[in-house]
Design a binder for these strands. Structure first.
Ligand SMILES: NC(=O)c1ccc[n+]([C@@H]2O[C@H](COP(=O)([O-])OP(=O)(O)OC[C@H]3O[C@@H](n4cnc5c(N)ncnc54)[C@H](O)[C@@H]3O)[C@@H](O)[C@H]2O)c1
Ligand SMILES: NC(=O)c1ccc[n+]([C@@H]2O[C@H](COP(=O)([O-])OP(=O)(O)OC[C@H]3O[C@@H](n4cnc5c(N)ncnc54)[C@H](O)[C@@H]3O)[C@@H](O)[C@H]2O)c1
Lengths: 250, 250
DNA sequence: CGCGATTTGTGCACGCCTTCACAAGCGCCT
DNA sequence: AGGCGCTTGTGAAGGCGTGCACAAATCGCG
């Protein structure tokens, strides 16, 4: 989820002022919208014109009531007795998420992980485009990866003036992440996706999301540990095929 | 996953010190423990013997009250007026997370991403060890990556009998993920970390966590969209920056 | 034209999580 | 010994999210 909400915790005003184009969606809802969107695309390719909340919920791995409530936050785009128009709903969700406008992404740290990310087509397929790669290692600068040339990190300000970069992805070692974040912020980046295992400090108007594999594994480890300590008296396995899924979370 | 929240283990049994099966920690707390652990290791290397909740909270990017409440769930390992003993707390958290026992991990799908994951030392540094790599592509089988040989996916059952594999990591295309998950479950894996953008269906006793880059980017995109539609100017800068994605309980 | 089947949208209750605020505990200094 | 400052641990309040259950809305059909 997001770490820094709107900065004003004590500011009494707020509330109901923001009427830009859409209401303030619950953070939990926002985190699920991309999942719905993916499910909708799959369904659309399967030839479905409309889909019920039950069906879409199953495809997205969530409760149908939750899905309906989530979608109700965007407005009423369903038809009672029928379901949701797949194409219309895709359009709406993409609009709310701001996916209708191409967003420029830059990637800093073209190492093991960065290399994989640079070639990931999951970026482009959702309106994101990697416009620049950066690294501090002179031996990597100039290298061509998936059609992009690796720039030196010092060139970031200049590249940023040529093209407005909204999102920066950090794939450097943890020790360099804060410095990189500072440079990204200085270059005008307002959203950061951080793969380095460390806490980043950024201005309040910058959003940071973190992906940490080690944390995911440790959470799984805890559940393994717990499961192992319950084997004494398991009480039976339920063979339900119910899928259960952790969300990301945010 | 299932939520058994009956009062089963309640009662007045206070297992304040040491060992056995532990209380049910809130899922939110579990997700933060690894972050505390990382911060503690950093602090420990910095030479600190004790750390206050305020200091540790800052290092982990959370509220200090939250941190204290989280730690209180594990028992009382702090000293009022002084703080927490770094080494002791590390030991306790590692125990609770089950990191004191080495957990065998296997990785399925040695492509772009899988290749990077196979070489990631963030696994080993927390008690995890990749014991096997699998892929379906005959041209990749036999390849040696970071000291490990890539096996064909069909060999999974056999390898699993040689070594108990607790955790499986899926880094295949989405279309193959469910089939791979089924095979992992069949081989006795009870925890899965899924990088493929799809919903997995597994038995109730298997935990699944999902990491989806595209979702992270889309959430950032939403906030970009929102920020762009607000022409107001924000205020100061805050020093928080933890990212944390949350999720629902397993 | 009305009726039943179907599905959305939502009021409501419940439980989890966060955060505040403070008493209790601990060490140190005088 | 006693006071004082510092820090933990926690009770309580409030907010957020979830899921149930149902009224309202819509379609198809006789
Ligand atoms: N490899 C993985 O599977 C994986 C998984 C999860 C998280 N991570 C994390 O992602 C980060 C990168 O991992 P990796 O395995 O790719 O490491 P890596 O060492 O292979 O790559 C790091 C890259 O960052 C570059 N770099 C270093 N300092 C820089 C700076 N100041 N500015 C720009 N570039 C700089 C290096 O030159 C190198 O190319 C690490 O923080 C790691 O913990 C890696
Ligand atoms: N590359 C990235 O940066 C990135 C980032 C996030 C998520 N992902 C996701 O991770 C997954 C892998 O991405 P990638 O870029 O490495 O793809 P890739 O095509 O490079 O690698 C996929 C690998 O899986 C193997 N494979 C296919 N079917 C298999 C099966 N049934 N059993 C075992 N192995 C099988 C393929 O042979 C291939 O080696 C995809 O689902 C992708 O969406 C990738």
């Amino acid at each position: 989820m997001s770490q820094q909400r709107h900065g004003s915790t004590s500011g009494g005003s707020d509330r109901a002022n923001a009427v830009p184009a859409f209401p303030d969606l619950p953070e939990a809802t926002i985190a699920r919208l991309p999942e719905y969107l993916r499910a909708l695309h799959n369904l659309g390719e399967g030839g479905a014109d409309t889909i019920s909340s039950e069906g879409l919920a199953a495809a997205a791995g969530v409760n149908s009531a939750k899905l309906r409530k989530d979608l109700s936050h965007l407005g009423s785009y369903g038809t009672r007795g029928v379901g949701y128009d797949v194409a219309l709903l895709i359009e709406q969700i993409e609009y709310v998420l701001g996916l209708d406008q191409r967003r420029a992404v830059c990637l800093v740290g073209v190492g093991n992980l960065g290399h994989a990310l640079a070639g990931y087509d999951g970026f482009a397929s959702r309106g994101f485009k990697i416009v620049a790669l950066f690294d501090a290692d002179p031996t990597k600068v100039g290298e061509r990866i998936h059609g992009l040339i690796v720039h030196h990190i010092d060139e970031l300000p200049q590249v940023a003036t040529e093209e407005t970069i909204a999102i920066g992805v950090i794939a450097t070692p943890a020790g360099a992440a804060q410095a990189v974040a500072d440079e990204l912020v200085g270059a005008g980046v307002t959203s950061i996706l951080n793969f380095a295992p460390c806490v980043l400090s950024v201005p309040a108007n910058v959003d940071v999301r973190k992906v940490d594999l080690a944390i995911e594994l440790q959470i799984l480890s805890f559940h393994e540990h717990r499961k192992a300590s319950l084997t004494a008296l398991p009480g039976g396995r339920s063979a339900t095929g119910a899928g259960n899924q952790e969300a990301v979370g945010s």
